[in-house]
Amino acid sequence: MNKNIFLTLVVLLFVIGCKTNPFTGKSTLNFYPNTSIFPTAFAQYDEFLKENKVVESSSEAKMISSVGQRIATAAERWLNSNGYPGYLKDYQWEYNLVQDETVNAWCMPGGKIVFYTGILPICQDETGIAVVMGHEVAHALADHGAQRMSAGMVQQGVAVAGNIAINDPEKRNIFNQAYGIGSAVGVMLPFSRSHETEADRIGLQIMAIAGYNPDEAAELWKRMKANSGNQAPPEFLSTHPSNDTRIANLTSWAPLAKEEARKYGVTSFQ
């Protein structure tokens, strides 16, 4: 393929692959429509559940489901009142607790969420679960999965363009090594950290609208920090902001989340 044609196609993808994040108003890179990515994500989620031990009848499993529904409802209230009716029409919310000592929870595109039992001691109670749930729901609302896939496509596309443009084998090898490290540390990792920060802020807002105390988010991350034993890579080499960064952000954003919740008649928090 002619290198000029290839570069033109890359630029064209940037232009047509943008979608507005309703919570931030920012234009985001997203080549994947919901109708394309959601069915695949749903199938992968179902396969994961078949291959892992799902906790179905415990009080914790029921709480995770009820908290998830409550926060998804709060998100829909916000979207409807801010000019985005029907935004969630393709979503199929599902919340499952899986027996696994890993301290983690995650969300697939379209609203398929998993909590591992290992994170429950850190959550401690329903409000702690709401902190994590708000964060995971926010990832789904902001299409972060599709954005990561889109960024990966661009990263690969630029690498291919570079290899097409550079004819000298030695220079091409230097480019590949430098680009691999530079695009990861300078682009992809900051991109991932920005998603985590965005999910923290959106999640804080919708958990408050759902009636949960946003002050507890910083407390949960203090427990996360203690649980990690302060063992973490430098922030610039991580996919996530540092615990200290998250604690500071969540502390400063909590009053704003309460203010937003008051617009929906929520004046007390559990």
Rank of each mutant, 00 (worst) to 15 (best):
L97E: 12
M133D: 05
L204Q: 15
N176W: 04
K258C: 03
M153Q: 14
K3Y: 12
C18S: 12
A226V: 12
H135W: 05
Q231K: 15
V15L: 13
V131F: 00
S59F: 01
W253S: 06
A208G: 10
K62C: 05
Y84N: 14
I71M: 11
E51R: 13
S192Q: 14
A218M: 03
W78D: 10
V158Y: 11
K62A: 14
L7E: 11
P169N: 11
S59E: 15
L120R: 03
S36N: 12
A199D: 13
S228H: 05
S81F: 02
T251N: 08
P190F: 06
P121S: 08
N227R: 11
Y264H: 08
D90W: 00
G162P: 04
V55F: 00
V131Y: 00
S65F: 11
Y264F: 15
V154I: 15
N21A: 09
I247C: 07
A140G: 14
S194F: 07
K171L: 15
G162T: 09
N2I: 04
V10F: 02
G110E: 00
H240T: 08
R172A: 13
G152Q: 07
D143A: 13
V10K: 03
T40V: 15
I206A: 05
T197H: 08
N173W: 09
D200Q: 05
N52F: 02
L250T: 05
V154C: 09
I206Y: 02
E259T: 13
A72N: 11
